[in-house]
């Protein structure tokens, strides 16, 4: 069963055809990677999923519902969470406060006028946030200001924040970009663990082939705004078209 169905999506920026007739299906409870050389349209495609961009034509269906024309927060409330290339967290707040925000958004929805309620009195939110931090091994950092954390920890926190909303689809935009090898491996392990312990579909955009081949079950190769091929990792590795468009370039 497909959780995300993309049909005939095109997007043009002035004279540049960023996406041309993209068709893509992401199966439920799989890890699906979207790879491609720079400028292939990977991020543009992802931005069409989350409401940042509206495609010129085509449709994007999430679990049978169209996401087109919806605002980012509405799409998130439908069950799609997004991790950014550079970790987007609330740097001025503490780690615990960071964790409580997605818990509140999950419980209360897009807006709740609870100005006369004590935050410390929200036991369910406090417990859930603490549990989520403990799962990530960050319980001791709960009073730390988020800006003081290492890049790897910021990434872990961001992923934990997304998971706290219990999304059905987690989108990751180059989650290991600019990371040291050790951090990259930690992130791979973390994502593998998430895959095993959660009822979740993961779609990942990635440059790092090591990450792609150790995580994904399906791979779509994008080149110049159109999908070249979609297959299993083993078949993608030896595919001549892919070598030409992407891996060949990487071997230079």
């Amino acid at each position: 069963m497909n959780i995300l169905e993309v049909k005939g999506v095109s997007k043009r920026f002035g004279g540049l055809q960023a996406l041309g007739d993209v068709n893509l299906n992401v199966q439920k409870n799989t890890v699906h990677a979207i790879i491609g050389p720079n400028g292939a349209g990977k991020s543009t495609l992802l931005n069409c999923f989350v409401g940042k961009l509206i495609p010129d034509s085509g449709s994007v269906m999430f679990d049978g519902q169209s996401v087109l024309g919806k605002k980012p927060h509405q799409i998130n409330q439908m069950g799609i969470s997004r991790v950014f290339q550079t970790p987007e967290i609330f740097t001025d707040l503490t780690v615990m406060e960071n964790m409580m925000i997605p818990c509140l958004a999950h419980r209360d929805g897009a807006f709740e006028m609870n100005a006369m309620v004590s935050l410390a009195g929200q036991k369910d939110i406090q417990e859930k946030a603490e549990e989520a931090l403990a799962d990530m091994g960050m319980a001791d950092k709960r009073h730390m200001e988020a800006s003081a954390m290492s890049r790897g920890d910021k990434r872990r926190l961001e992923i934990a924040m997304c998971l706290a909303q219990e999304p059905r689809l987690l989108l990751l935009d180059e989650p290991t970009a600019g990371m040291a090898r050790a951090d990259t491996n930690n992130t791979i392990d973390l994502l593998k663990q998430i895959k095993e312990t959660h009822d979740i579909t993961i779609a990942i955009i990635e440059h790092d082939m090591h990450v792609v081949f150790s995580l994904s079950e399906r791979i779509t190769v994008l080149a110049q705004g159109t999908p070249l091929v979609e297959d299993t990792p083993d078949n993608i590795k030896g595919h001549p078209k892919v070598r030409e468009a992407y891996l060949g370039e990487a071997q230079v």
């Binding site: 989350v50 605002k71 980012p72 927060h73 998130n76 409330q77 969470s81 997004r82 950014f84 987007e88 967290i89 609330f90 740097t91 001025d92 707040l93 406060e97 925000i101 997605p102 958004a105 999950h106 929805g109 897009a110 807006f111 924040m161 909303q165």
Partner: peptide
């Protein structure tokens, strides 16, 4: 306070 720090993250957190 979250709005002051990072509106992008807040939007993509469903708020």
């Amino acid at each position: 306070r979250a709005i002051k720090t990072n509106q992008t993250r807040l939007n993509y957190t469903g708020v």
